[in-house]
Write a protein that binds this DNA or RNA. Structure first.
Lengths: 382, 382
DNA sequence: TATTGTAATGCAAACGCTTTCATACATTTG
DNA sequence: CAAATGTATGAAAGCGTTTGCATTACAATA
């Protein structure tokens, strides 16, 4: 009783749904035109007479016709889907970016297929293969640190793709993102300009996270450039509990520490939490900065000074880039985005004795460069 | 220079990539078998002789053949992709679920196509249409509160689908999730059992969020069942800032309030933050519970008593259900999952005098309205 | 040896669309 | 008025698979 009711052309195998699905042929017949014209009326309306266009539209309506994606994809070699591979959606920054990208693509009639690599290159490679096989029109990767076979596959396939979340210079693969090293360099300089000379770095694992690694490098470079002693860098797994432990390690090992630069907000939250537990006053005794500007950063006690990524702009540009490439137009293959530095309550001048030390150091304390920090430097200096 | 180099069968239009893509025919030729056999060797190996199977496998390897998803989908009526429509990925719970589901499906060779509705039914309907057109083998929706046209579309299409995040009873559409009403009922009872009689409810907007609405109902029911005065329910937009304001409203309006039940952790964090600002001791003066058990819940000050959702199990079951339905097997159409209640530091017995006050009866005219004076009043009453 | 059954294979027809190419007609131009 | 140009349409050839059915090969049985 559910299996009958097939249309006139004998199908050579039974279909899933009970009622026969409408096809373009049905629409064409009803509109009194050929399939070719029906197809054109739907996809390239400017090619058909207004009157015909309307007839087809009506037929589509009346039959509630829905085009068959696979058939369309096979015939036109366009799937209207874009692949995105993130390390994980559990990280708010990636989830939010995926969301924004999905919305943007949607407006252009594209879908987003999401896969996650769990920071595992082999796994990522497989995902790329799988997506390629599934059929996508473009692909987004996070960062440029991927398996060589992956790049090879991607290049061979001729698929438009772009990397995000890290600006890797002009000569690299197409990329859109901030320069993590530079942004964290600037953030670190903010601390130095406040008078801090003994700065620790707290980071999640950098081995398979080039963004984090770049940030650590930025902090190191900045501290080095100011002729300060090499920072103690503590690296912990990416959980709040580990972050707390990391903070403890940092302060235990460095009696004179007056500031901790955390490579992301998660680490910073852990640091803040642990300071509270240890009775360390932030920013009185210790200044803390983060990176990402998660929603809660504004509401912690004290609120967190951090770096905000231009996620919306990044996703927008990623979408634009891909669509351009898909349509054969070309687009700038490298776009550097700027983050903004958000000063809140977790940073301040080092406690007195530390400042004395700072005076002794090279600390050129030149004018600040980070656009947004300018305003703040003033208030911080008050 | 990139357009030439076509294979021997004249293509009737130029393809995107430079090097000709391998097709099944190439594999078949190389393995010395027909396309049919090659196809079977790949998809249903048990149907071909071992030796042939190996020859085909080798050919696939050597030519680095990748099947054409669209063609396969057209011929087999299976796209190997599942659609998921969430309100937003910005909510950790949805992002995490998407992640887990994606991983689970992946293991079975399926991809996840994610769309978000932004809590907008019309938008959701369009997403469903779009996904249907794209071609998916199954679909996941959040909750059962959707546009009627959406259900209609879904039923007509005959597509396997399931709703998650809310158990809606046996008679409803297929669903897998917790009973939000009941879980929050239980959470509220926990407060009552501690001795609280004056409980406020803080929630994000319930209008387009049946889960939240169900939780509020659960709290109301529980409070009613214990013959306590109807709770003050404050509903605010879903941001920390609004949550803080909501908490303030709650305590200002209800002088004798000793507990606040928040319908999700975000609200609870806001409540906690605002209590800190107002100098309200949690749990000394006020107990707070949340819902979701986000990662930070364990690390707030005080840590948050909350309800943990079985997200992993839910996603796993959703995947299993869909795959079963796709393969024609049937599966239990309604699965109720149980949440777990996590007791942490944000809850405790109500302060002594408050209990006495509550005994007196309804929540009229507590004399003290401003938070700061209230605090004093309370401690003075001890 | 003839017969039957089974396991492997191949042929060719879908799958439902897009797009090339040819055709028909209407319009402009020399 | 013929020729040239342009505009809408339709016929039909794909697109790269899967799969129903027929056929073949081969072993087992009579």
């Amino acid at each position: 009783m559910t299996q009958s009711q097939q249309g006139e052309p004998k199908r050579h195998r039974s279909r899933r749904s009970a009622k026969r699905k409408m096809r373009l042929a049905d629409v064409a017949r009803r509109a009194g035109v050929s399939e070719a014209t029906a197809s054109r009326a739907i996809n390239r309306p400017e090619l058909v007479r207004q009157e015909v266009r309307e007839r087809v539209a009506r037929a589509v309506q009346e039959l509630s016709y829905v085009a068959h994606g696979a058939a369309r994809a096979l015939a036109s070699d366009r799937t209207h889907s874009i692949g995105l591979i993130v390390p994980t959606l559990r990280t708010a920054v990636f989830a939010e970016s995926a969301e924004i990208l999905q919305q943007a693509l949607n407006r252009s009639g594209y879908h987003l297929i999401i896969a996650s690599s769990e920071y595992d290159k082999a796994r990522e490679y497989h995902e790329v293969r799988a997506l390629l096989q599934h059929g996508i029109d473009g692909m987004v990767l996070v960062g440029q640190d991927h398996a060589p076979e992956l790049w090879q596959l991607l290049e061979r396939s001729g698929l438009p793709f772009v990397t995000a979340f890290q600006h890797a210079g002009e000569s690299s693969y197409p990329c859109i993102g901030v320069d993590n090293r530079q942004e964290f360099y600037d953030a670190t300089r903010f601390l130095i300009n406040l008078g801090h000379t003994n700065i620790g770095v707290l980071t999640a694992e950098t081995a398979s996270n080039e963004r984090l690694a770049a940030r650590v490098a930025g902090a190191r470079d900045c501290i080095g450039d100011h002729s300060l002693p090499k920072p103690d860098v503590v690296e912990v797994p990416s959980t709040l509990t580990d972050a707390r432990q990391g903070l403890r390690r940092l302060v235990e090992r460095n009696a004179h520490l007056t500031a901790v630069a955390c490579t992301n907000d998660l680490m910073a939250f852990g640091a803040l939490a642990e300071c509270r537990t240890l009775g360390i006053d932030v920013p009185g005794q210790l200044s803390v900065i983060g990176f990402d500007d998660l929603d809660i950063a504004e509401h912690t006690q004290p609120s967190l000074t951090t770096v905000r990524l231009p996620l919306a702009e990044q996703s927008r540009r990623v979408g634009e880039y891909l669509l351009a490439r898909i349509e054969g137009r070309d687009a700038p293959s490298s776009t550097r985005l700027k983050a903004s530095f958000i000063v809140r309550e977790s940073t301040g001048r080092p406690p007195e004795p530390a400042r004395a030390t700072a005076q002794r150091g090279t600390a050129d304390a030149g004018p600040l460069q980070t656009p947004s920090s300018k305003k703040r430097a003033r208030s911080a200096a008050e």
